[in-house]
Structure formats: C-alpha cells, structure tokens
Design a binder for these strands. Structure first.
Lengths: 250, 250
DNA sequence: AAATAATGATTGAAAATGATTGTTTTTGTA
DNA sequence: TACAAAAACAATCATTTTCAATCATTATTT
C-alpha cells in the first residue's frame, strides 16, 4: 500500500469515528506500527488530525486552545528547535513583531527576555503572549478564519504605529529567484510591512519551504535572516550565498 | 478505550446530567476508579467540569459561549434580552462596531442580518463573529488581560480607519451627571472614539449600571441610545428625559 | 551504480493504568 | 454536638502500554 493510500485510509476512518487506535490502523492498512506512527506524525504536522496517546483524533474546527498551553507539545522537533533559537535572540527590553502561523507560535513558549513588548498579527499568538505576562499588542485588521491571522490594510495600518527591534515571520516559500512568498497577498502585505519596520527581520522556516515559491511576494532573500531547523547541506550552501542562515541543531 | 474517548464520554454524560458519580463513569468507560479520578483532575484543570465529592458537576461556561439554553441566571437573562433587542437593530449591509465585554458578547449569537461587517475590540468577540461567518475585524491595540479587550492608542488608531452605521458598547456606569463611565481610561478612549465614529451609537446595560459612576468619562448621556433589560419605572422616567431608552421586555 | 526515501524491527524512555496505602470528608447514630 | 463507620480521596508503586529514536533492510529515484 502506498503512502498516499495509507494517509487517505487513515483520514477516512477518522471521518467516521472520533478517534482511531494505532492497532486499528495497522490492521486496516497492513503496515507496521512504526509506519503508522510516522504517518500520524506527518498528518498532524499538516493539521489534518491530532495525535493522542494510543492513536489519533479528529481535529475539531472550533479548537479554542491551540493545545499549546497543555503538555501536548507535539510541535515538530524542527519547529521547536527553530523556535528556541529564535526566542534566544530576543533580548531584554526589545520590541518585537511576531507573525501569525504555527512556526512563529512555537517560539513564544521559549521567550525568556524580560520587559519586552510584542506586537502580533496572530490571534492565538496574542493570547499566548498575554498569558505569559508579556505586554502584547494586536495589529488589528480582518480576521482571516483559515489561518487565524489578522490581515489586510487594517493590519498594515496597525503596524505603522510601531517600530521593531526584531521581527519574526513565517513564510510559505523561500526561493532563490522569487524570494520570500506566501499564497495570500493580504497576508504578504502585512509581512512586507513588518520586515520594513524591523531593524533585524528574521524568517522562520522548516526545510520544506526551501526552493518553494507561492503566489505573493513578500521580500527579497537578502532582506531578512533565515532561522531554520536542520536542512540539507546542499540547500544550505545554495542559500547562504544570498543571505544569513541560522541553523538550529537539536 | 483511549484517554480522549473517556474524556469525551465523561463530558457527554455531563451534558445530559447536572452531576455524575464516579461509579457511573467506571461503568460507562470500563476504566478503574483511579483512572477516572485522574481524568476528572485533568478535565477540571482544563475548566471543562468541576469536581465534587463523589463525582463531577457541570461548569457553567460564561467565558466563551453565552450558553443560550441556560435560563438559570437572572442577570444573563436580562443581558440576553438586551442582546436580542440590540441584534434586531442590525440591518443587512450594516457596518457595526461591537465593544468588548460580556454584555455585547450576548448580542452576537442573535445577529440575523446578512452581509454585514463588524469591527470589535473584544478578543472573544472577534472569534465568535468569525465563527458565525460574519466578516470580522479587530481594532488592534494592547490586549488587556483581565477583560480580554484591545485597548489604548493602538485600538483608537485602528478605529480611525472605519466609520460605522451602528456601534454597540458596554459601560460600567450610567449617571445623570457623569454620563457614561468605565474604570479604565484606556478603554474609555476606545469607547469614546467608537461613539464618535458611529451614526447610531447604542449603550447596552443592565439595571445595575444606572445611577452608578466610575473613574473614566466616555461620553454624555445624550450621545447614545441606551438598550437595557427591565428597569424600575422610576429609573426610566429619570433617564428618558435626557436620552432615548430601549427597554427589552422578556 | 549511487543516492535517497520508505519501511519494519528493536530498544530504552515515557506515559497511562490499576491496585494499594493511609488520610480526609461525609454520613449515620448516639 | 460528638463520635465512629463508611465512603471518597490523594499519593504512591508496580505493571502494562505506547512512544520516539535508531538501525538494518528494502524500494525508489537519479
């Protein structure tokens, strides 16, 4: 059975039931436990299901808590490593921008610096920052439901009130020619503005984003420093000719 | 049975009954008493139920959902009536401002009008609006943790991008001399700005707010129409000399 | 052929569970 | 009220289950 088929089988089973056990999945697919576990890890990172001890569960659309505050720290190790590295760059008294998206969400729990001010376009980020006792500001703007990000001219306008020491952004593509890109132009505009208004802009990305490009241009590669988890040596050599790369080693 | 399944089972049982005994839960799930106890501890920490000696009890969740079905609380009934009346004032294609606070939160579920745009300074409000398929914008600004409101110059600045048909605000005091007041000056500034920018500003308030005054001035009584639940005849006569009052009769 | 990716088995670590302990709370009775 | 029995409790321990990491093997691509 092909990987894709297994993934489809798993998701179909989850349409009918609230949760599935690993054992049910090995029986349904004929694959080993290890393989199923890997499948579940992948599917969770794509946001298509939620892993639970013993199996997997449906993702509820309403999902109030981003299951971050809980112990279920099931971010990919890569994102965590990048998040940790990014957080370590924040110094006492900094004013920082934190972009919407799960990659940047992963850095928030690691922030140690005192007396910082954070502005964010992420809905969940705002609450998480405030919950950590960090002085948190929202950009304002339209709440885009799918990504839970504040976007559009409202957000850009909101940003123009501030000036940042550092900005931490997520993107969907990092491409030698296309630069940093993301699918939604409204979100791109916010990211572009944030990069403009930061002395040190950083892009957080995992390996899958390299050599990808999507619709809307954000900035050129040299406009920001890239923070990433482990990436292939080849990729690294290609991109570090154009901009700085901070590679988090776990 | 997986942990998640048990948790779901427990919560489902609690939807139907006010309390459940531990023994009922061990029978329903097949798990041991120890496990059920641990489940209850977890669920209580997540705020999803309340432990009582011998089992667990429902928790009334006023935080997120303004639990429509519940009729036990007199204040919430009053708020609901006012919310329903306020929502009926919103017409198709309106652009409205909805203030932070539980009073205004209560109006959101009753909005029927199509194709409206809503701007809000309330954190929960933003999500609730988006969840209802309403085009929702946040004001931006500092997230004040205690009230979950976006406040300060950031929020005022965000508001200045918009112009409203109607604005719905909550206040802490309605006083013949002091006008509308609220304890926090930062929040007051947001409310003042919203009233300025709306053709028809409304104040939502329950009876307890009348003849009260708190620190920060928002506006004068005549600057907005008051929407309220049932209030004493005497209060009504006093205040309707100065401004319009819409009294919701349940 | 060489590099890359996917798979299954194995391992020690981590998490969940059920039984047991002694303590606290409730209940019934004097 | 005072007291003792019963019920429910938190804390702890040993056992079982599940997990992530690693490695060797097998497909797949280059």
């Amino acid at each position: 059975m092909l990987t894709e088929e297994r993934h489809a089988t798993i998701l179909n089973l989850l349409k009918e039931k609230e949760v599935v056990k690993i054992q049910e999945l090995t029986e349904a697919t004929g694959a080993s436990e290890s393989t199923i576990r890997r499948d579940l890890t992948d599917l969770e990172e794509s946001g298509l299901l939620r892993r639970v001890h013993g199996g997997a569960a449906k993702v509820s659309r309403k999902r109030i808590e981003p299951s971050m505050g809980e112990k279920s720290n099931r971010f990919s190790e890569e994102k965590r490593a990048a998040g940790r590295l990014a957080a370590s760059l924040i110094e006492d008294n900094d004013c920082v921008f934190i972009d919407a998206g799960t990659t940047t969400l992963a850095l928030i729990p690691y922030i140690q610096a005192k007396n910082i001010v954070a502005v964010t376009s992420g809905f969940d980020h705002l609450r998480l920052l405030a919950a950590q006792g960090i002085e948190a500001y929202g950009t304002g703007g339209r709440l885009k439901k799918s990504t839970e990000a504040l976007t559009g001219t409202g957000a850009v306008h909101g940003l123009q009130q501030y000036w940042f020491d550092k900005a931490f952004l997520g993107v969907n593509g990092i491409h030698l020619k296309a630069g940093y890109t993301t699918p939604d132009p409204e979100e791109a505009a916010v990211k572009t503005e944030a990069i403009k208004r930061a002395q040190q802009p950083f892009i957080l990305a995992d390996a899958s984003k390299f050599q990808e490009s999507t619709f809307a241009h954000i900035a050129n590669l040299e406009d920001a420093v890239i923070i990433t988890g482990k990436i292939p040596e080849k990729t690294r050599r290609m991109f570090e000719k154009v901009t700085d790369i901070k590679e988090a080693l776990s």
